[in-house]
Design a binder for these strands. Structure first.
Length: 261
DNA sequence: ATGGTCGACTCTCGA
């Protein structure tokens, strides 16, 4: 069977619900992971997704953060949980974990970090360290596992439009690369890169950069990573730029991967 | 180019 997973930073799920619904209809994913829903739970537009045939799971707050998963109604999502459970800040609106077909899926909206000289940046680095411990505590890298979402880091030189100028900026800082690499070393494969080695593959363009998409001023900060036994089963991966070019564009695109299970 | 533009919500912040 084919298992199709996708991720999309909505920058407000209420503002972008039409984009999400259109993408569901056109692409029929089994799971769509959302970040930056920016919506308290009592205002989440769950009914629209239910009518489209998807069961919504979500945890949000006013104005900031927020994660959600839309799961095709014919599938069973088990063991759904929110947040890091290590006694530190749980950040329940940044991490949503569930299990589908026995495969754990962890959807994260990693702290953005703001600026390398701030406490927010140190918090981001620490968050990656806590997340590695979370994977170590709950899962095995010898079994199928998916880590999906807005990681807020472009991991390699090929993942930004100007690696020389951007080196040291938030999202492309050596300390972030090291922190993310430590999580990867636990046992993840970058599934998109496995299928698409070419440069100029971006999932985010800053609204503030004029004609950024046309001029190729992007970043690849959204990811779908899998442990080896699952990565071996991936068959294709692609970026769908449609949401970035829509009438009411998002700053991110959709990233999608297919597996044969 | 320390600019620029979004979204939520308040007259500003976070990305």
């Amino acid at each position: 069977m084919i298992f199709r997973v996708a991720t999309f930073n909505t920058n407000s799920v209420r503002a972008r619900a039409p984009i999400v619904l259109a993408w569901l209809k056109d692409n029929a994913p089994d799971v769509l992971c959302l970040q930056e829903t920016k919506t308290p739970d009592d205002a989440f537009p769950g009914e629209a997704f239910t009518q489209a045939g998807y069961h919504p799971f979500y945890r949000g707050e006013k104005s900031y953060n927020g994660v959600a998963m839309l799961v095709r109604e014919s599938l069973r999502a088990e063991n759904t949980a929110f947040g890091l459970d290590d006694g530190g800040p749980a950040d329940e609106t940044r991490l949503l974990a569930t299990e589908i077909h026995g495969i754990p899926i962890v959807n994260t909206y990693v702290p953005q970090g703001r600026d390398p000289n701030t406490e927010f940046f140190r918090y981001k680095l620490e968050w990656f360290s806590r997340l590695r411990d979370y994977f170590e505590r709950h899962f095995s890298s010898r079994k199928p596992l998916l880590w999906v979402g807005d990681f807020n880091v472009a991991p390699e030189t090929i993942d930004v439009h100007d690696p020389v100028r951007l080196s040291g900026h938030v999202g492309f800082h050596p300390d972030e690369h090291k922190a993310l690499a430590t999580v990867k070393a636990w046992g993840f494969v970058d599934v998109f890169r496995k299928h698409v080695p070419e440069p100029n593959q971006y999932t985010f363009w800053d609204y503030r950069v004029r004609d950024g998409v046309a001029r190729g001023k992007g970043w690849r900060v959204d990811h779908i990573w899998a442990t080896r036994p699952l990565a071996e089963r991936s068959t294709r991966a692609w970026i769908d730029i449609a949401p970035r070019l829509a009438q009411r564009p998002s700053d991110h695109t959709v990233l999608a991967v297919e597996f044969h299970l």
